[in-house]
Amino acid sequence: MPELPEVETVMRGLKPALEGRRIEGVLLKRPGLRFPFPERFAERLTGRTITSLSRRAKYILVSLDSGDILLIHLGMTGRFTVLSPAGARNLGEFYFEAGAGEGGEGSHDHVVLGLDDGTRVIYTDPRRFGVMDIFPEDETTSHKLLAGIGVEPLGNAFSAEYLADRFRGKAAPLKAALLDQHVVAGLGNIYVCEALYRAGLSPRRKARTLVRRKGHDPRLNALVHHIREVLSDAIAAGGSTLQDFAHTDGEAGAFQQRFLVYDREGESCQRCGRKIARLVQSGRSTFYCRKCQS
């Protein structure tokens, strides 16, 4: 499933093609994705101008001049293909598997948006775990998929003091605490593994052990720094390609070439030479160095 850097990459790639454009037509090729499309979905999109795109956690938010928000989650295999008026794919491609049909007629092409300049935006999703919803902008913080989500890890509210407050009394392993979307928005398995390695913290450590009666363990400052750093590095690299993800110029994300621990079980730690270990936490693989992370 795409994590924050991949969703950010897709959102940034869609911006130049969508912002300021009017949606002239909406083709829904099935009644829904993971959930049914909301009532009057196509009607509420048709004729509206896209004013801006943003990201919240792992969701893309498309603001419309009607005051509505189009919410998009890519699920496991969702991607967008943007076709220019001439049919050429020169405005960006966003893949997790094989490309969309040239006219949106592919068997896994489920939503086609026609824009006022002739551009077509095709949403393709073989496993149909993606989500699309539309709702009034003033319901953003209360929407069922967005309510209670924690702070953005690249935002000003994310700090060691914030984590200390959320970790106080928490017996959960540090990795599980960071993956809790109510604590930090958008963090996923890959980047938590990498950030914990950079910070020298064990994924098995109890989150509360980094909290002091007054204040916090200085290693929380390092953790915040490395979370920001690994996410920024991944976004700059266009995300990580584990299957067939590609970013705006059609090239694969490159951050997987910089993994220090993720998916490197049995390989040598670049710091101490000890073998990278793997364990399963909450059904997910965790990769770490037993010597360098404590």
Rank of each mutant, 00 (worst) to 15 (best):
32 G>C: 10
46 T>A: 14
37 F>T: 08
42 A>L: 08
40 R>K: 13
31 P>M: 05
34 R>W: 05
52 S>T: 04
43 E>P: 08
48 R>Q: 15
50 I>T: 08
22 R>F: 03
48 R>C: 05
30 R>V: 12
23 I>T: 04
25 G>E: 09
27 L>N: 03
37 F>Y: 15
47 G>Q: 07
55 R>Y: 08
30 R>L: 14
26 V>R: 08
40 R>H: 13
53 L>F: 04
24 E>S: 07
41 F>W: 02
33 L>G: 08
28 L>N: 02
27 L>W: 07
39 E>T: 11
56 R>A: 06
53 L>H: 02
29 K>Y: 09
46 T>E: 13
31 P>N: 04
32 G>W: 04
46 T>P: 12
50 I>M: 04
56 R>I: 05
34 R>D: 05
52 S>L: 00
47 G>Y: 09
37 F>H: 06
31 P>G: 11
45 L>E: 05
48 R>M: 05
40 R>A: 12
25 G>I: 03
39 E>S: 15
28 L>C: 10
33 L>N: 06
41 F>R: 04
47 G>M: 13
41 F>K: 12
30 R>K: 15
26 V>K: 07
54 S>T: 14
44 R>T: 14
33 L>A: 10
37 F>L: 08
42 A>V: 08
54 S>C: 08
28 L>H: 03
44 R>V: 13
45 L>V: 10
38 P>W: 05
38 P>E: 04
28 L>F: 01
29 K>P: 05
46 T>M: 12
55 R>L: 10
44 R>E: 11
22 R>P: 04
37 F>P: 07
